[in-house]
Design a protein around this nucleic acid. Sequence first.
DNA 1: GGTTATCCCTAGAACTTCTAGGGAGCGCCC
DNA 2: GGGCGCTCCCTAGAAGTTCTAGGGATAACC
Lengths: 117, 117
Amino acid sequence: MSQSLDVLRGTLDLLILKALSWGPAHGYSVAEWIERVTGDTLQIEEGSLYPALHRLEERGLIEAEWGLSGNNRRAKYYALTVAGRQALKAESATWTRYARAVFAALDAPASLKPARA
Amino acid sequence: MSQSLDVLRGTLDLLILKALSWGPAHGYSVAEWIERVTGDTLQIEEGSLYPALHRLEERGLIEAEWGLSGNNRRAKYYALTVAGRQALKAESATWTRYARAVFAALDAPASLKPARA
DNA sequence: GGTTATCCCTAGAACTTCTAGGGAGCGCCC
DNA sequence: GGGCGCTCCCTAGAAGTTCTAGGGATAACC
């Protein structure tokens, strides 16, 4: 794993919420999921992942419960709260809007260039 | 103006480079351009803009020259260097790739959800 | 018994952006 | 000629996220 979300800060929380949208999952599997669905384009450091999970929990967007993973390991399962589901919806919309705005800027025609003035 | 790029960190440099891709422009007009082409979705604080310009200059991606604006004000005109033009191309490609990866994650079907294991 | 993979965690550095200021001059209007 | 708004530049410090670089423990496999 190496850095990659540095370029899109503030996106990790959103991706975590999305990963949990189908039901509880533990941190390690969330990271795996992100890497898998993005074709390894986005890679999550554990040093970024766990603090992010703790932040989300503290904000009341997810809830944790200790359990046992399929590999028979102690694992902390996180689940979306009601507020978390709302946040996913809201942040998803915000991100899409901002990302589209950046694309619009990158595709802007010369006719819209900054005023020479 | 209010915050908005907090959500897409690391994007400001890219947008500035893009703004200068048609020729020299001063800081204030770069910010105006970004807000205009994104339909006011992205708004740039001056406290973010000027440090970013100085960073880019220090990295050798842009060059500055004092001049006079169309409004007859003292203004610092920034121009892309050769390295800056390359950086624009590279960072633009990187951003596009990462943004597409996030969209892919947000659109991921349930069949790809994190392993319950 | 050693190795690999899974799973959790933290401290501190690095970096970008925002907040919250400050400053100066031009042009317009009364 | 005084005031006001807009243009244009800048900085210091706070806030926040991510990375680096560790540490730790156990299950499963050879």
